[in-house]
Design a protein around this nucleic acid. Structure first.
Length: 233
DNA sequence: AACCAGGACGTGA
DNA sequence: TCACGTCATGGT
């Protein structure tokens, strides 16, 4: 099964490297605030890792643009900080992230994660074996499989493949997975057929989102998708 | 003006 | 296990 690797290269040639996770310029922490999202992120800061974790929650079933506004507001208030997230009243936190939708639930989730990070620091989580960190994350209320895996991959640099609704749409359309397959089965399929490379995993998922936004929204998903004629079974 | 966005969780069958 | 309701703002 080389299809998955071939599709990655096809998408990479088509769109180029995506440089996910998109860290906001205001969380730059590199002296100057860059005008555009930072690509590569080999030496990301602790604060940026926390911003990614918060972003993973804020973008749940929400357009990234709306989540991003909330992230910028959190930065503006100086709340991309574990202690701040814990100490600020939940109601105020909700107001700060209003634009991301589900703001009451997400305020609770951010607090739950902040509490969790007090017990298990980002540094410790990074040193931890993948599965151990994963099960700990899944124990946090509001953190499901996709969010946990997004955090593991993009904030903690762990080699795990993120599955989302877009992944299902594209690859079931190609006939490579069953549309009703559960999260773990789809993830296993990708991880069994790809080298476990963190940078590739990051860009692959980002490319899937980019591609899906172009060809898999609206009525008749996948209509003009160039992957279909080349890779559909 | 419906419809949907880079989901997760609680509930009842 | 599985289907379904709930949470909610902002763009098309």
């Amino acid at each position: 099964m080389r299809a998955l690797e071939q599709i990655f290269h096809f998408l990479f040639d088509m769109y180029g490297g995506q440089g996910w996770w998109p860290v906001t310029p205001v969380c730059g922490c590199r002296g100057e605030t860059p005008a555009e999202p930072i690509y590569g992120m080999a030496n990301i800061t602790e604060k940026q890792r926390l911003e990614i974790i918060a972003g993973a929650v804020l973008t749940q079933n929400t357009a990234w643009k709306n989540a991003e506004k909330a992230i910028i507001e959190l930065n503006r208030r100086g709340w991309i900080d574990v202690k701040k997230l814990r100490s600020v009243p939940e109601k105020e936190l909700g107001q700060a992230i209003l634009s991301s939708g589900y703001y009451n639930q997400k305020a609770k989730k951010l607090k739950a994660i902040a509490d969790f990070l007090t017990q298990h620091s980002i540094q410790n989580l990074r040193k931890m074996p993948l599965q151990e960190a994963r099960s700990l994350l899944l124990g946090v209320k509001g953190v499901g499989k996709e969010t946990a895996d997004s955090i593991l991959l993009y904030a903690l640099d762990k080699p795990i493949f993120v599955i989302d609704a877009y992944t299902r749409r594209i690859f079931s359309r190609l006939g490579l997975i069953n549309a009703k397959a559960d999260y773990d089965a789809v993830q296993k399929f990708f991880m069994d057929n790809l080298p476990h490379d963190v940078f590739m995993f990051k860009d692959y998922h980002a490319l899937i989102v980019q591609h899906a936004k172009k060809y898999y929204q609206g009525k008749s998903p996948g209509k003009e998708c160039p992957l279909v004629k080349k890779f559909a079974a």
